[in-house]
């Protein structure tokens, strides 16, 4: 009964979040007809790139899991980094989306003078969340490396006299954590590249400065969202498997409590990762539509 609730409650919560997101999106959606043609195109481009990136993320995770499991013959060390590697693929899609669009056309071109900086996009809730969870993952990997035994993939408790009393795994030691950290560095570097591309790409013609800035913030938020999802999923696996392994080898009250807390935190991270993936990025709403044309 309790085990059933453990899965039903998060699933129900996710369903509820999904419905709320859909209702809010539908209620605040601004129809394309209300937008200048180029701005509507920009929004469509953003949605298409985001859908392709999310597809690459999810399909990539499935394919990479299969590949790593097969190639390493039952010791899927790289499988621990699959979410982040799949995220790297999705971030490449976002990067290509930013680098290939929009292209100024026509013999007469107008640019509104605006001082754009990468750091302007590296602010806000999505950036802070991505930074916090990335820091959390780095911390978990370091702690896991310290707590793991010499094999780097299990945890062992020893009794007096160095007699092995219990070993359990998989545990996020260096063997799993190393590839995760490397993949995290790659993913963070790709996010930085997306921010750079989103900052330096051409402005959307006919968009007023505020709308143009909003479109750039959306691009940045999509990158942070993918990173946040992948990091939370990796954290979920590390904490869940690490906590479960620790529960099997520790019988002290405090150590057991910490292990149980880590396991539960892992489950929570798993749910939060899906919530992050569902959470909408900044977008053009009815109230955000420009009221004044740009002076050219």
């Amino acid at each position: 009964m309790a085990a059933g609730l453990l899965f039903v409650v998060p699933l129900f919560g996710l369903l509820l979040v999904g419905v709320v997101v859909l209702v809010v999106l539908a209620a605040t959606h601004s129809p394309d007809a209300a937008l200048p043609h180029e701005v509507a195109s920009a929004r469509r481009h953003g949605v298409v790139v985001s859908v392709v990136a999310t597809t690459v993320l999810l399909l990539g995770a499935v394919v990479l899991t299969g590949m790593t499991a097969r190639s390493l013959q039952g010791t899927p060390v790289l499988a621990a980094a699959v979410p982040l590697l799949a995220a790297a693929g999705a971030l490449v899609v976002l990067l290509v989306g930013e680098l290939t669009w929009p292209r100024p056309k026509g013999a007469t071109r107008t640019a509104v003078l605006s001082d754009r900086r990468v750091r302007d996009l590296a602010r806000g809730g999505w950036a802070v969340t991505a930074l916090l969870v990335s820091g959390g993952l780095a911390l978990v990997v370091v702690v896991g490396a310290v707590l793991a035994d010499g094999s780097g993939r299990t945890i062992t408790t020893t009794s007096v006299g160095n007699r092995v009393s219990a070993t359990a795994g998989p545990f996020p030691g260096v063997v799993y954590g190393g590839p995760q950290l490397a993949a995290l560095v790659i993913a963070v570097a790709l996010v930085a590249l997306v921010l750079w591309a989103a900052t330096n790409r051409a402005a959307v013609v006919t968009a007023d400065p505020a709308t143009d800035a909003l479109l750039r913030r959306s691009s940045a938020a999509r990158a942070f969202r993918i990173l946040t999802f992948a990091v939370l999923l990796t954290l979920a696996a590390d904490l869940f498997y690490g906590g479960s392994a620790a529960q099997r080898v520790h019988d002290g009250a405090f150590a057991s409590a910490v292990a149980v807390a880590a396991t539960l935190a892992g489950l929570l991270c798993g749910v939060l990762s899906l919530v992050a993936l569902l959470f909408p990025v900044p977008r053009l709403t009815r109230s955000a539509l420009p009221q004044h044309p740009v002076r050219v």
Binding site: T108, R109, H292, V296
Partner: peptide
């Protein structure tokens, strides 16, 4: 949304 008109530069590539 800001209502302040922005300063812009216009380029005529045929000029």
């Amino acid at each position: 949304m800001t209502a302040t008109p922005a300063v812009s530069v216009t380029l005529d590539l045929l000029a």
